[in-house]
Amino acid sequence: MTKLLEMKNLNVRFKGKRTVHAINDVSLSMDQGETLALLGESGSGKSVTLKTLLGLLPPKRSQIDGSIHVNGVDIMSLRGRALQRYRGGEVSMVFQEPALALDPVYTIGHQIAESVMRHKGVDKANAMSTALDMLDRVRIPSANRRLHNYPHELSGGMRQRVMIALALACRPRLLLADEPTTALDATVQIQILLLLRELQKEFGMGVIFVTHDIGVAVEISERVAVMYAGQIIEEGTTHEIIRDARHPYTQGLLAANLHDVARGERLSAIPGAPPALEARPDSCPFAPRCPVAMPECRADLPPMLAPGDRRRVACLRAAQPIAAE
């Protein structure tokens, strides 16, 4: 079976007053229907990876190298009509801020129908009935009335449901979710997560779920890829990552979680901040913050070790057993 996604040695550099090496040598592969969480802090390159996948980066200011195939199609070579068919048809995206990602002066029904008309070549009436069906599927109450609402007339959670309905209306093979719950209240976050999980099963599409919240990643995904400084530093099944994280950064993220922390005790945090990426990293980018860094870590980029099938970790320490804290 063709791989859903095959990304090889992706490099993205932004040119401007200062150059930013946003993505450095990222490779990723996904099977059909797989759910992958892309985990990392702000600025680690998660969103840029998604935007590259949809060809949304400004062409003048960004230099992209490497190859990306979706269902065997080289998407870097797509232009014009073919690119438009791919965007929203093959791959679609749910944005972080539904309030900003929906056009404020069109009704939500129109905005869903617009996409359906483009991809399915149906007339407005048919597209509107698809839109209505989608609103039902994302459990929006009295969908018939909501169809004619404007985005500002809905709550944040409802808007994100609309965004999901819009993204799924044309049955994409791959859904990109860019921190879709970050802008929502905690209770609504869980509802949206559960909805996404159900819809993923129902539609059988692959999902890349970008998040900085390791709890969310565990909740939604089968596999986790951890990003740091524009690189994937560790990848494995969700189970492997929770039970047997090998990279000190992943271990730090897990330790910074609220679970099992006694009241009044200081939360553990990773000291320092991610590097600015004005130059391409030539040593381990995490070394300055790493509690177990060795002189070798600052000398060269760490090798990508493969401790298991589809299991990766970029750390010298991962080769040797690490003393448990």
């Binding site: 438009q84 929203g88 679609s92 995206m93 900003l100 617009e114 996409s115």
Partner: peptide, 28 residues
């Protein structure tokens, strides 16, 4: 520069479609 322009491209709209949306937003 607003997010919904990216979102429009992301759902497969053409440049002309996007400009139509922009015009409607600017009209008032």
């Amino acid at each position: 520069s607003q997010d919904f322009v990216d979102a429009l491209y992301a759902k497969g709209m053409s440049r002309a479609d996007v400009l139509r949306h922009v015009a409607r937003n600017a009209a008032a």
